[in-house]
Structure formats: structure tokens, C-alpha cells
Design a binder for these strands. Structure first.
Lengths: 199, 199
DNA sequence: TCATAAATTAACCAGTTGGTTAACTCAAAG
DNA sequence: CTTTGAGTTAACCAACTGGTTAATTTATGA
């Protein structure tokens, strides 16, 4: 059957992503990944010599996807309000498209925080300097120690948490999955407004 | 050596909590739990007939701890501002004391959302009616559809996320663990102020 | 065409893991 | 004293799991 479609390797990576996202490193099974990719276990080890290596590849890809756009937005040329709007829009849509990605990263970093330094060394994951300067310029209160950090933490929390905790939050708000999805759709505008008020 | 101290069962539950919080259901090993509890594997199965049953007990306990106080605060007699302050203070301190608990719940619910209904049936996990009414009374804008839900989601997100994503956020803000802990300590006041401004 | 490398498979293996079993200890009740 | 039941142990087991091997097929390019 060969690799008519996407290369076998890519198919493996895609499938492994969905499995690892849902079950984590320890819960995932090489056999299941192989089955879903339409190959057998030996083939899997042919392309990725170990589960650990396959996982690393998936994790690196996930982290890149999760952090990738953020840096670009935050270090872009846009004025502060536009930048905030971009960040919120980007994050919410990106996360909504890949359910489980945020929870996956949080869970695996909880167990092995060193995976961060492993891939990013001592370099800053995301350079916040430009963003911090824009904040301080917009409102003197963000010159106070930690004030900019709180703003950033708020921004991330408001965007990420509702996606991360969907199973719990949707039940707390006793909404159906469809209702909750609509609710999430509204949030980008809601969050942007809330944050802009803080400037 | 008998059970001089806390009953063996309680010791198992405490130990199993820390192990499950860190490694999840699939990552936890009965042998490790037994070792940490100072017993052997057979004893473990004597008190809990299966890993699944032990896990269920731990998970139920964790969920109770996580949601327990919330309902009481939100349905208490306090006025809205005091209630918000109480919620923030309660949540932040409770989560800070049990590292991994939030990530544990999020991870396991991600995989098996049905665990929620399993334990709470169709009953509301937390009754938000009183809180919603107080919000609507404080500011007419919270009578709009979903407005109260957004406020609640914001409140939870701001409190929980920084604890949940500590490994990632502390690196993004390039802070040491000690610095980050101080940062978290500041947040209760910061969040409360932000939320009260929204009324 | 033929040699060489890539892709693929079935069978197998050793270590791990949840769980069981049968025997043993010991304190309390009768 | 002995019966009884909870507590405890070492040894064991079957299933699972990541990983390997050796042989085979398929593509490739000289």
C-alpha cells in the first residue's frame, strides 16, 4: 500500500499526536499508534527507534505549536491594543483547533519540567521585553514590579484555562458541549475588552 | 508493626494521592505506592481490590477537595465583594498547598469526562444561582446572556491557571521557583482587585 | 538487468505490571 | 486454650508492552 498519501512518517506523527494528547506518554501504547497509522509495531520502531524518541518529537512539535505564534505576535510591530487583540485571537483559535494540546503540555511538564530546558536550553522561550515596554508606556502602573507579569499571566490564563478545563467548566456552567463551544467563541471578544480596559 | 500511626488505609490513600497526582492513573505503579506506604503489593490489594478502585477513591477525594469549598463560598451569606475575595483567597491557598492536584484533575477529566457524572450524577456540581443573582443585582450588565458565566470563568481561570501551568509560566517569566512562589502569593490581592473593578 | 538500499512483515523475547494464592502471625473474643 | 478473623508475607502467574531479529518484498539507479 506504500506511502501514496503523506509519507508514513508524517502519518505516524499525526496519529501519535492525537494518542499522546489524549493519553499522555505513559498511557499511550505503541501498538495503538501503529494500528491507527495502518502499520505494524516493527514499522513504528523503524521510523522512531523508541517510544521516548517518538514522544520527544511529538512533544517538541506540540510545544512549538503552542508557543510558536506567541513570540511572533508579542514581538511584532503592532501597537499594544492591536497586539493584545492578536494574541487573544490567535491563542483561542489555535487551541480550539487542537483539543487536548494544552492539557497535554501541562500534564507532561508537570511530571518532567526539565523537558522545557531540554529543548529550549537557557534561551528565553518567548521574549517579553517588547511587550513589557509597551505596557509600561501605556500606563505607568505597569512599571511597578510584577505588574506587567500579572497582566501577562492574566492574559494567558483567561485564554487558555477555559479550553484546558472544558470538561469541568462546561459541567459547572451546566452547558452542553455545543453551548460551551459557542461560549468559547464569545470569549475572544470578551477577554480582549477586559484586557484593554486595564490599560 | 501494625497500624500504630494513622490506619494503614489512610496512609495508602495519602501516598496514592501524591503518586497519582504526579503520574496520573496510567503512570502510577502499585509497587511504588506500596513501597511508599511501607507495605507490600498484596497488602495494597487487601485494602483496595484493584488499581482502578484505589484510583477512584483518590480521584473522588481530590475532586471533593477541589470543588468542596467553592460551593460553600458561592452559596454563603456574604455580600458579593466579600464572596469574591473569599473565593480567590480560598482557591489560591488551597491549590498552593496541594501541588499537582489541579493538573491531576484536568488530565484525568480530559481522558474520561464521564468520571464527573459517575460521581455527581446529574446534580449540579456547584450551584451558581445565588452567585449569578448577586452579580445581576450588582451590575445590570450581568443580566446579559453569558455575562455571568464569563465572569465566573474569568475568576476561576485567573486563580487556577498560574498554579496549573507553573512549570511553563515560571519559565516564560524567567523566574526562579522561589520568585514564582512570591509572585503567586501576590496574585490573590491582584485578582480580587481586578474582579471587583468589573462590578 | 542486477545490485543495493529502503520498506515491511511475522514471530519472538525479556522485563514489567496488576493481580492472586496459600500459608503464617497475632490479637481479641468465647 | 482455642477459635476466629483481620493483617501480613513471599512466591507466583498470566497478560501486556516496548523492542528486536531475520527474512522478504519493493523501489531505485547504475
Amino acid at each position: 500500500m506504500k506511502s501514496l498519501d503523506a509519507s508514513t512518517r508524517d502519518r505516524i506523527l499525526a496519529v501519535a499526536g492525537t494518542v499522546f494528547y489524549q493519553k499522555g506518554l505513559s498511557g499511550a501504547r505503541m501498538q495503538e499508534i501503529a494500528d491507527l497509522a495502518g502499520i505494524n509495531k516493527a514499522m513504528l520502531h523503524y521510523y522512531f527507534k523508541s517510544k521516548e524518541q517518538l514522544f520527544d518529537t511529538v512533544f517538541q512539535q506540540a510545544l512549538g505549536q503552542f508557543l510558536g505564534g506567541i513570540g511572533q505576535v508579542l514581538n511584532g510591530e503592532a501597537a499594544l491594543p492591536a497586539k493584545i487583540e492578536q494574541y487573544v485571537a490567535y491563542t483561542t483559535t489555535a487551541l480550539a483547533e487542537t483539543p487536548g494540546l494544552a492539557a497535554f503540555i501541562v500534564h507532561e511538564l508537570q511530571q518532567h519540567p526539565e523537558r522545557l530546558s531540554k529543548q529550549f536550553g537557557d534561551s528565553r522561550l518567548v521574549n517579553l521585553d517588547a511587550f513589557r515596554q509597551q505596557l509600561a508606556a501605556a500606563n505607568a502602573r505597569y512599571q511597578a514590579p510584577h505588574a506587567a507579569e500579572h497582566f501577562f499571566a492574566n492574559m494567558v490564563a483567561l485564554c487558555v484555562y477555559p479550553v484546558l478545563a472544558q470538561p469541568l467548566l462546561s459541567r459547572l456552567l451546566h452547558q452542553s458541549e455545543a453551548q460551551y463551544r459557542r461560549f468559547l467563541g464569545e470569549r475572544a471578544a470578551h477577554i480582549t475588552q477586559l484586557l484593554l480596559e486595564q490599560l
